[in-house]
Amino acid sequence: MATTSLSVFMLVKTTQEWLGFSVEHRFELMRTQMEPILQKHAAQVSMRFFDIEFYSARVTDLWLWETDSHHAYELLVEDLRETPFWDRYFTIVEILPGVENAYAKNYDQAPLLSA
């Protein structure tokens, strides 16, 4: 049975505490607290970071996690929850897991072409 890729869209909002830090300090916190977690799980989980604050007041950023293993994603979240990035520097607004093109795979059909 083929592994189905999992994409998790994590909608987050920066907190006033995070915004109160200088830009240099924010990057230092990301390098020292978040990057080690990303490196630890890099073999199984990747992250993409999208800025949304230009277009939404509800969320400021979208963290896209991609993996072939639900368990690997769960372990990453467990590590992330042990840092201030989880509900201190960022409020986790919503977590939306999805499987790309499942509508086609489930019916053994080719997915629609995308540009």
Rank of each mutant, 00 (worst) to 15 (best):
S56Q: 11
T4H: 08
L64I: 04
A2V: 09
L113R: 10
Y55P: 04
P111S: 04
F50N: 06
W86Y: 05
R31S: 14
F27H: 15
V12S: 01
F21I: 03
H71A: 13
T83E: 00
S5A: 10
E66M: 14
L76A: 08
K13H: 06
N106W: 06
H70I: 11
F9K: 08
Y55M: 11
S5F: 06
H71Q: 13
L38S: 11
R48H: 09
E82W: 00
E100R: 10
R26M: 08
Q39R: 07
T91W: 01
R88N: 14
D61H: 15
Y55S: 12
L19I: 11
F21M: 05
G98H: 03
L29S: 03
T32S: 12
T91V: 12
R31K: 11
W63G: 02
L64V: 15
G98M: 09
V45Q: 03
V59C: 13
L75S: 07
Q33K: 14
E17M: 00
P84E: 00
L29A: 05
F85R: 00
L6T: 01
F50P: 04
I95K: 08
R88L: 10
A72M: 04
T32M: 12
P111R: 06
V99D: 07
H70W: 11
M10C: 10
L62N: 03
N106V: 14
K40A: 04
L76I: 12
L62W: 01
M1P: 15
L62Y: 00
M10D: 03
L80G: 00
R58P: 05
F85W: 03
P36E: 07
L62R: 02
Y73K: 00
V59E: 02
I95G: 06
A2S: 12
W86H: 00
S69Q: 10
R58M: 09
R81W: 09
N106L: 12
Y73C: 00
E53S: 14
F54E: 09
S56Y: 13
V23L: 15
A102K: 12
W18L: 04
P36D: 04
M10Q: 11
V59R: 00
I52C: 06
T91S: 14
V8C: 06
E78Q: 15
T60P: 01
T32E: 14
H25A: 07
Y103K: 10
Y89A: 04
Y55Q: 13
